[in-house]
Design a protein around this nucleic acid. Sequence first.
DNA 1: AAGCAACCCCTTTTT
DNA 2: GGGGTTGCTT
Length: 801
Amino acid sequence: MLPSSSPVPATLPPESRLLANLNPEQLAAVTLPAEPALILAGAGSGKTRVLTTRIAWLLQTGQVSPGGLMAVTFTNKAAKEMLTRLSAMLPFNVRGMWIGTFHGLCNRFLRAHWKQANLPQTFQILDAGDAVSAVKRVIRAMQLDEERFVPKQVAWFIAGAKEDGLRPKDIEVRDAQTQKLAEIYQAYEDQCQREGVVDFAELMLRSFELLRDDPHLRAHYRARFRHILVDEFQDTNRLQYAWLKMFAAMPGERDALGETATGALFAVGDDDQSIYAFRGARVGNMADFEREYRVRHRIKLERNYRSFGNILDSANALIEHNTGRLGKNLRTEAGPGEPVRVHESPSDFAEAQWVLEQAEQLHRAGTARAEIAILYRSNAQSRVLETALFNAGVPYRVHGGLRFFERAEIKHALAYLRLIENPDDDTSFLRVVNFPARGIGARSVEQLQDIARATGRSLHQSVGALGGAAGTKMANFVRLVAGLREDTRGRTLREIIERMLAASGLLDFYRAEREGQDRVENLEELVNAAESFVTVEGFGREVVALPVDETAGLLPDADTGEIISPLAAFLTHAALEAGDNQAQAGQDAIQMMTVHAAKGLEFDAVFITGLEESLFPHENAAAEPDGLEEERRLMYVAITRARQRLHLSFSQTRMLHGQTRYHARSRFLAELPEGALKWLTPKEGSFSGGFSGGFSGGFGGGFGRGSSYGGGHGGGYGGSSGFARSAAPAPAPAPLPPKREPDPSGQGLRKGLRVFHNKFGEGVVLALEGSGADARAQVSFGRHGTKWLALSVAKLTPIDD
DNA sequence: AAGCAACCCCTTTTT
DNA sequence: GGGGTTGCTT
């Protein structure tokens, strides 16, 4: 038995309205037959629109039911965006659909098949930081040198191996070092298994292996998902592509149910925007896909609705310098627009000052600050820029850095919650066993770990064997967690968290701390997050735009139909979506971020700073041709973020690692078309030859030397501003989803009825909610407790009294 | 257990 | 240069 699909809705918008305003290429892509297809979607070409419209069109024309398609993205944001747009296009709840991130969908899959995947039902997800601490524990337990086996690097190695589909036994042992690494990997795997936790890569690998090794399960899913749509396909790694292959049969492939129709894998991507090779992404997957699936439909989306001509000309000319491209050229009907402005500064400090002044000038001329982005290659560059903005009192927002669920106080709180769910989660146990301080020293913890190691049990299970005063304190801690578990059973998420915060002493601890105000506020924010989570989650409520992974946790178990607890769902959410990083979101502030972080975003005005050799392209990447090409793609991504105005900036000197460094201007500047540029400082600058001579005279003097240099088109302000934006595709007006009458009596159930469940035995129906595929019943089973069951899966037989 | 000095790193990193 | 962590000292 498997999760079933939702019914097809009664009313849909007419096909003509769905397809209106698509350009010919977009239309062709949207209406392709159910066959493998590769869409080369240039920056700003309406990629998301094609994806969502295709989904809507497939549903509208009855080619597929909502449960029969899957759409995969990389980020929660992209998945959310897709769901939001879809719910505006379709008159029904998109919630049950398999639309989400790779990891979110894997989680959903493993929650439904936890037994077959050899996982505990309450398995927890380790984020990157958790994984490093877990690796560290393994290395210590093996008494290895942490200098030689740096936990972070080992964690990277393990993740890399998993993303290549390799288990410890598959690691090719070339030397003593890899031998040991494979051993650590094995021990780490054992530890995770023992503790009931999985890391990000494990989510993927475990679900891939389950499908690979179970032909019937694979056949089931292949028969179910008639259409599989993938966003940002150029960023997929080996494992992700292999995972997709499990869901979409290749031409001529047979499976347990006989010959399968070739899976309609609809891949959307842009090889020119592949910027994650360093993390294992494999652009080659695009070519492999075309070959292996004998792709007959390849469509290029080259019409750009975002940027003016000069900006696109720059992007096109730059990327021409790369080899082995699939070939694509962006074009626009928006006219050339403003020239791309290039500026040289004597120092990074002066550069920051210039950017600040230009940005503020734009703001005074009417551009919202939130529509101005300052981009840089590496995070270290943000500080001098931040300082300039801060001193000028200009509001700004730095993207990246610590995110909500990664904050220490939040991780502590989550650790308590995870222990409530799964006491064997040793990572969480160690995090909070002595936090807030309970007089449990490091030595006692080590003793406990020794016992646990010797007996092969979790720390929590080993506490009883620890004697002495330390043993008593530990036992108190275990009792605290157990008490919380008892105390919070059946309570709302809000109550659970509030009780935990009080009973654990976390809140008191931070209240007493001098600098703890922010942390207290964050903990309060956690309660709020839980509250809104529940509201969105709320059984039976209409939901229009729904955060993706939040649905995942509530999928019913494949065997019993049991729905996991809101707490478990919340913990999954916390692990899979780290949350945003800034409280000041919403304010009109200048946006600052790395180029990587800017991918997928767009702004009226963009500043690309630090365009210097060894910075951008970065010195570590420039050595290899592949590295240089990726840097160039990175520059391409940066350029194509701009709608109306683009500023390129570089500096003669820069403080780096505590030293003043002198860099030549980036080679990328020379790869841009002269006609699209306007040099605000002399193109052949007085310092371009190096850093000798009248260097000091350059400070300050090089400033505001006016715009009379260079030349090309002037172009004038105003007039055309806003054009690019209004020409961009807008989502169709949102028809409100019709309210559906709850019909929970699908199985002839009613409140108070006594029922029988194959696994849980006799029970009494306490409540009924939702309808159709969403219908749920709350049943009290006595010995097995009270459970929410999905009626589409759970078999409940009424018992006559 | 807290506070401070010493030490280390320093590209990007969606999940 | 600076931020974060570690470990030593009180």
